[in-house]
Simulated assay, not measured.
Amino acid sequence: MALEYRGVSKDFVTNPDNPLTAVRDINFRVEEGEFVSIVGPSGCGKSTILSMTAGLYQPTRGEVFVSDERVVGPNAHVGFMLQKDLLLPWRSIVANVEFGLEARGVGKAERRERAMKELRHCHLAGFENHFPYQLSGGMRQRAALARTLAIDPEIILLDEPFSALDAQTKLLLQNSFGGTIAAAGKTTLLITHDLAEAVLMSDRILVLSERPGTIVAEIRIDLPHRDQPLKRRVLPEVSRYAAELFGHLKLEEKAL
């Protein structure tokens, strides 16, 4: 499934006389199976783009499409992982991972099997019967990632999913996750402040301006091993791409 944004702007009316425009005139398309990252300054509307894609609220102007169908509300084809883990404190970790499957009416045995598979994938085997308060912040974030993957969405939206992880676990999960979504052909949109992460995992990167966010650059990552970020990491071109991204961000800052 593909994503498309046609002339999308979003205003938040906190003051009727002075509405806040988060993003303005956003136009881009994410092809089926493509991995696109969005980078930009804090507060430039990156998360707003994901929220509109997930159908959590509507654009003020323009339209968002999932597989040529306009987004008018939450979509069963989309999995959305937020910056906060939002685990339910009264449910065990495995029950949290099962939550989306349970809501979709998946049988108990199948949802347990799928939840345990994703917990192993996210290096949480052995912690399935723990509760959120018993896990570190990074482990909770991994549990939230397992919950997103368990519903097997065709489109995955990621809002800084690896930001709370230690460096070693972050690299391992980037590599594992990159391979999983590439093999499954998932269409993925990632928000990140980590420029190297964007280069390691993406087919394309979009750079947003300061608020109101507009697309100021689009960089295609012409490197092998998108399905193996650890292999891509050692390529000398990674630093060049990261420097190019940083240059766009600094140029944008100087233009203000």
Rank of each mutant, 00 (worst) to 15 (best):
M1E: 09
L3A: 05
R6G: 00
G7Y: 02
S9R: 04
D11Q: 15
F12G: 04
V13Q: 07
V13N: 05
V13D: 04
T14A: 11
D17P: 00
T21K: 14
V23E: 06
V23I: 15
V23H: 05
D25P: 06
N27P: 03
F28I: 06
E34S: 07
F35D: 00
C44I: 09
K46D: 04
T48W: 03
I49S: 04
M52R: 05
T53Y: 12
A54K: 10
Q58A: 15
T60Y: 01
R61D: 12
G62V: 13
E63F: 02
E63N: 14
F65S: 04
F65T: 05
E69S: 09
V71E: 03
G73C: 00
H77F: 10
V78Q: 04
V78P: 02
G79P: 00
G79L: 03
F80C: 01
L82N: 05
K84G: 12
I93V: 13
A95D: 14
N96Y: 11
V97I: 08
E98K: 12
A103Q: 15
G105M: 10
G105L: 11
K108E: 11
E110Q: 12
E113P: 00
A115W: 00
A115R: 02
L119M: 14
H121W: 07
C122I: 08
H123L: 12
H123Q: 10
L124I: 05
A125T: 09
G126V: 13
H130K: 12
S136I: 09
S136N: 08
Q141V: 02
A144S: 13
A144G: 13
L145D: 02
R147W: 05
L157Y: 01
L157E: 02
P161R: 08
A167Q: 10
K170P: 00
L172Y: 08
L173E: 01
I181V: 15
K186D: 02
T187W: 10
T188P: 03
T188N: 07
L189N: 08
T192K: 02
H193P: 01
L195F: 08
L200A: 10
M201G: 06
R204S: 10
I205Y: 08
I205S: 07
L206M: 11
L206A: 10
V207E: 03
R211A: 09
G213E: 04
I215N: 07
V216P: 02
I219D: 10
D222G: 13
P224C: 11
P224N: 13
P224S: 11
D227E: 15
D227K: 07
D227C: 05
P229A: 11
L230M: 14
L230T: 11
V234A: 13
L235K: 09
R240P: 01
Y241I: 03
A242N: 08
F246T: 11
L249A: 06
K250H: 13
L251R: 15
E252Y: 01
E253W: 14
A255F: 09
L256G: 15
